[in-house]
Amino acid sequence: GSLMYASIFGNVSAIIQRLYSGTARYHTQMLRVREFIRFHQIPNPLRQRLEEYFQHAWSYTNGIDMNAVLKGFPECLQADICLHLNRSLLQHCKPFRGATKGCLRALAMKFKTTHAPPGDTLVHAGDLLTALYFISRGSIEILRGDVVVAILGKNDIFGEPLNLYARPGKSNGDVRALTYCDLHKIHRDDLLEVLDMYPEFSDHFWSSLEITFNLRDTNMIPGSPGSTELEGGFSRQRKRKLSFRRRTDKDTEQPGEVSALGPGRAGAGPSSRGRPGGPWGESPSSGPSSPESSEDEGPGRSSSPLRLVPFSSPRPPGEPPGGEPLMEDCEKSSDTCNPLSGAFSGVSNIFSFWGDSRGRQYQELPRCPAPTPSLLNIPLSSPGRRPRGDVESRLDALQRQLNRLETRLSADMATVLQLLQRQMTLVPPAYSAVTTPGPGPTSTSPLLPVSPLPTLTLDSLSQVSQFMACEELPPGAPELPQEGPTRRLSLPGQLGALTSQPLHRHGSDPGS
């Protein structure tokens, strides 16, 4: 009898404990919600809404976190579960008819179910419309201010047509639940991603989709105040780019002037030289400038040598048109050559190039014969006009050509200096018209024969001689050997007369 009593008592207590286990969990969670309300000092109306929603959600799901349970299964099984949970929507909604099984599984994985109690606001006026909503159960109302403009029910759709707008718009009203509602919502990016994977279904979906109420604000059109608020930074940046392009296009129409201050000032006329910023005076940081632009901040801005204009002085008759350009485009679109090309026009420029290279940067340069637009006047290309890779490749080509020119210049200078040193070592320090008596009659020769300089066969020296023939050397430049009979510069000019005159010897006659 005691054994029977113990078994009955144990079973009854276990049954009672299981009955009250759900209630215990409910009270535990309710205590957490109330502690949250007390800690954050939530006001009474919002506090009442929180408690009511918790009670309804507990009775609806029995305190089970559906998302946590669903995430515990593998992905393939999750797709089947989501397809079952959203079967009513996918079967009865017209846009989803005719979709393949794979497309429906992908869509079912992207849908999220939302449960809303009465009085809950789903979308506020001015919120971004980031999702498309399908009503599965219940009814909602749409308000503009305090005026109800629409009441939607089961199988209705609200949001915005995503295929017509590249960016999400703003809501033009509040969406509030009238009863307990079940909503299926899919985010904008998720829907577009699935439709991109199934393009054959995309056309059918957009053609058959009928949005019951379009929440997009109709005033959000390009150029409206609301649109400016939504895309303020983007609009200002776009206007700045367009104004920069218009100014650079105007600059290219004036090829007669070359400016070292950047493309923003290349198009300024002579009357605007004294102004601080020219056409860019209202925004000094709008356009890029070269490193020399920092010198323009000092006094005497109108007389600054940074602004270059072609000189009108005539060229000498024998002067060549100019050196070879550094870039391939210089032959086609440049009416002034790079300062480095002028360094190779003569030997005198070679000796004085490194010492006063900055001073020569603004000297007169030889002109190319074609009066085409200036290379320095070409505006900086924006990322939309020329690819970045093209600019980098041009810079690399320019750097390689500069290296080759520097190597060639160093070799030419070394060769010229070597020839000058050899000339100085071969010439005796001094010569006299009267020579010392020699031991015999073989001493009648006034000077030792001097062998002429070897013929220069280097390509670089031939180019130097060509430049010497075309360029007029300055007075202080050293002379180079030329073709024809060679003669030492330090010898007297009348050596031929010395050989014809008898030598005057000093000596005593033994017979006297």
Rank of each mutant, 00 (worst) to 15 (best):
E471R: 10
P485F: 12
T407V: 12
S374I: 04
G233R: 09
D203G: 09
S139P: 01
D412Q: 01
G322Q: 12
S286V: 08
P339R: 13
L402W: 04
M413I: 13
G355L: 06
A469I: 11
H506E: 13
N214T: 03
Q423R: 10
S465Y: 05
P299R: 06
C181G: 03
S136L: 04
L129N: 04
E479I: 01
P339A: 13
P314D: 14
R315W: 07
V427A: 07
V148R: 07
L230H: 13
P446D: 08
W206H: 06
A477R: 09
S272W: 15
G262S: 13
L164F: 06
M468L: 08
P502L: 11
S285A: 15
I140N: 01
K154R: 12
P429A: 10
I140P: 02
S410G: 09
R360A: 08
L480D: 12
R408G: 08
D412A: 03
V194T: 08
F311W: 08
V258M: 11
L192V: 09
P446V: 11
H504R: 08
R144Y: 07
T455R: 10
G298C: 06
P225H: 09
S202R: 10
E193S: 06
L417F: 07
Q501P: 13
P222F: 05
M327C: 06
E160K: 02
A497L: 10
G496A: 07
A177S: 10
I157L: 07
F244Y: 14
I135V: 09
R315T: 12
L308G: 12
I378V: 10
T252S: 13
P474M: 13
S443N: 13
D196S: 10
P314S: 08
N338E: 15
F158Y: 01
G346I: 11
E231S: 11
E193Y: 06
L498S: 11
Q482A: 10
A268S: 10
T179R: 03
G281R: 05
S293E: 11
Q401S: 12
T130A: 08
P317S: 11
C470G: 09
I151Q: 12
E392P: 09
S313F: 14
S500F: 07
S171Y: 01
D190V: 03
E210H: 10
G281K: 04
R238D: 11
P291E: 14
L456H: 08
L495Y: 06
P373V: 09
L375Q: 11
I186G: 02
T415V: 09
S207F: 08
P320D: 08
R358V: 08
S293T: 04
E253R: 10
R273S: 07
E331W: 06
R358E: 08
Q237A: 13
D251N: 08
R245C: 13
L402K: 03
T442A: 06
G267M: 10
V391D: 03
S352K: 15
E328Y: 01
S289K: 12
P371S: 09
P321D: 04
Q254S: 13
A370I: 15
K185V: 13
S393P: 11
T218N: 07
A268G: 09
E200I: 01
P255V: 10
S136D: 07
L458I: 10
S136Y: 11
A131M: 12
T228H: 08
P291I: 13
L498H: 15
